[in-house]
């Protein structure tokens, strides 16, 4: 019959923590590589709507963002939805200049691939969005992306 050796009640040896810095460094490198610093501070409230057909936006360097939503400080800026380009509120008329600048910063062969991502709050009325779209059409930035949260819809999953 097999015998179980009774564990000798020696004092517990402390776990070596010598490799702890290495583990932490590894985590650190992971976050350093994956991190994307927020380039713009949002001055508008944005809660994107949900969509099941939403697809991942590839090639972030080719994307320029237009934010539309209610200002964060309604007591100063009111509740009317505003457009934000880069770091400040903007007018419809500023969009043309903004897109032209974004286009200039791209390489020649990528200029046609510029995508404009519309980050719009779900409660914003279409009027302002339509104005933006018309403006984009005028200056030839045809590729747009309606930003949306990706959800899996169960109802139509056949």
């Amino acid at each position: 019959m097999a015998k179980f050796k009774k564990k000798s009640s020696k004092s517990l040896t402390a776990i070596s923590t010598a490799s702890l810095p290495d583990v932490i460094f590894m985590l650190l490198f992971f976050f350093m590589v994956t991190t994307v610093m927020r380039e713009t501070t949002l001055y508008v409230k944005i809660k994107p709507p949900e969509a099941s057909q939403a697809q991942k936006l590839e090639k972030k360097s080719l994307v320029s963002y237009i934010y539309i939503g209610q200002p964060i400080k309604p007591q100063i800026y009111g509740t009317e939805p505003r457009i934000q380009l880069n770091d400040s509120y903007a007018d419809i008329k500023d969009i043309a200049e903004f897109i032209t600048k974004e286009k200039e910063s791209l390489k020649e062969e990528d200029k046609q691939k510029l995508t404009t991502s519309l980050k719009v709050d779900q409660d914003v009325k279409m009027g302002i969005v339509t104005d933006v779209k018309q403006e984009l059409r005028k200056i030839g930035a045809f590729k747009i992306n309606y930003s949306a949260r990706r959800v899996i819809d169960i109802a139509s999953n056949k």
């Binding site: 976050f31 994956t34 991190t35 994307v36 927020r38 994107p48 969509a51 057909q53 939403a54 697809q55 991942k56 936006l57 972030k60 994307v63 995508t115 991502s117 519309l118 779209k133 984009l136 059409r137 930035a141 045809f142 590729k143 747009i144 992306n145 309606y146 930003s147 949306a148 949260r149 990706r150």
Partner: peptide
Amino acid sequence: TTMDVDSGITRLL
């Protein structure tokens, strides 16, 4: 870090 992946519906105007 912001881990949010940009997703959306792409359309051609």
